[in-house]
């Protein structure tokens, strides 16, 4: 029975936390974009536009769901739900604090990668089911991109697994205890390339979540809105929320693997607040980067992956293996 209550409370907690975040990340993004662009961003609804997500949500929910004529009705409806579900399930494995983890998996890292790969399928489904050529191209683009970037991301993750000797996310964090010089991205005693490895992982998580400058799937100047062209109302809303959920997962994972999760930079008072600070900082970096750079092309993207990220992650893998063997 205790177990049931625990599951239920985590369920409610995750739902509340996620709902709040997904709503306000949109606000953060718009506000950030606004200030970067010498304007204000949302301002009218509530103080500092704080009620804007509510207004947006109401608007999206009150919209009529229009299914295009030549769409595959069932898949069209199912794709955003699938995308959202796949993203939300991942939150089960994230350790927010030392004892604050919904379900501690022994293979937490693997679990996150395996479930996240289902999101690609849902994007493909959505793009296909819309019955629109733009969506189709965007779907294939998004998936080929996420497949391409899974390789360096997994290799980098394997490096971390080698260092920690575990795929348990909590265990990985526990091993980074102490000051920030113990965190993996500065762990020069494990491999001298760890900072580069951190950048590789960060870039890959940006590409995996289809964020600008890698947002080829929804390149508005080429493909109108990509795989969400035909989605309106809550279908669109779910895709957007799934994007933010993926963003949070990507940042959380980077935090856990490289930035010491819930560890404090000075070795005192570790706890969930540190985790959140780091995660939000990374999210802010995502927003910042998105509103600074133009978009890459598919070839530029693949070049980056094959010419830079994969060689670097492989070199890092070898060097780490060497360090583990030698020291």
């Amino acid at each position: 029975m205790d177990e049931l209550i625990r599951i239920l409370s985590y369920f409610v907690g995750i739902a509340a936390f996620l709902g709040l975040n997904l709503a306000y990340l949109g606000w953060v993004e718009r506000k950030g974009a606004g200030h970067i662009q010498r304007r204000n961003g949302p301002k009218e609804v509530g103080p500092y536009g704080l009620l804007q997500p509510l207004a947006d949500g109401l608007k999206l929910m009150s919209k009529q769901l229009i299914v295009p004529d030549n769409a595959d009705r069932i898949l069209y409806m199912a794709a955003p739900v699938l995308c959202m579900v796949a993203s939300v399930i991942l939150f089960v494995a994230i350790p927010w604090g030392e004892n604050l983890v919904p379900r501690e998996f022994d293979f937490g890292l693997l679990m996150i990668f395996s479930v996240a790969s289902a999101a690609g399928l849902s994007i493909l489904m959505g793009g296909w089911a819309s019955g629109n050529k733009y969506s189709l191209i965007a779907g294939t683009r998004a998936v080929s991109q996420s497949v391409a970037y899974e390789v360096p991301m997994l290799i980098t993750a394997i490096t971390i697994v080698m260092i920690s000797g575990s795929m348990n996310l909590n265990e990985i964090v526990r091993q980074q205890a102490g000051g920030f010089w113990h965190w993996n991205f500065l762990a020069f005693n494990k491999s001298i390339f760890m900072p580069i490895s951190f950048l590789v992982f960060f870039t890959c998580s940006m590409a995996e979540t289809n964020r600008a400058p890698f947002d080829l799937g929804e390149a508005e100047s080429e493909l109108v809105a990509g795989y969400i062209t035909e989605y309106g109302g809550m279908g669109f809303g779910l895709f957007m929320m799934a994007e933010y959920a993926n963003l949070m997962i990507g940042c959380s994972l980077t935090t856990i693997l490289f930035l010491g999760g819930w560890q404090c930079p000075f070795g005192i008072f570790p706890g969930p607040h540190w985790f959140l600070i780091k995660m939000y900082f990374l999210i802010w970096c995502f927003v910042w980067i998105r509103w600074t750079y133009p978009r890459t092309t598919l070839w530029g993207l693949l070049n980056l992956s094959w010419k830079y990220l994969i060689p670097f992650s492989l070199v890092n893998l070898l060097v780490t293996a060497l360090f583990i063997k030698v020291f």
């Binding site: 974009a33 133009p294 978009r295």
Partner: peptide
């Protein structure tokens, strides 16, 4: 903007 960068447009 065509190339996907929104910010320079505003500047």
């Amino acid at each position: 903007l065509d190339l996907g960068g929104f910010t320079p447009l505003m500047y």
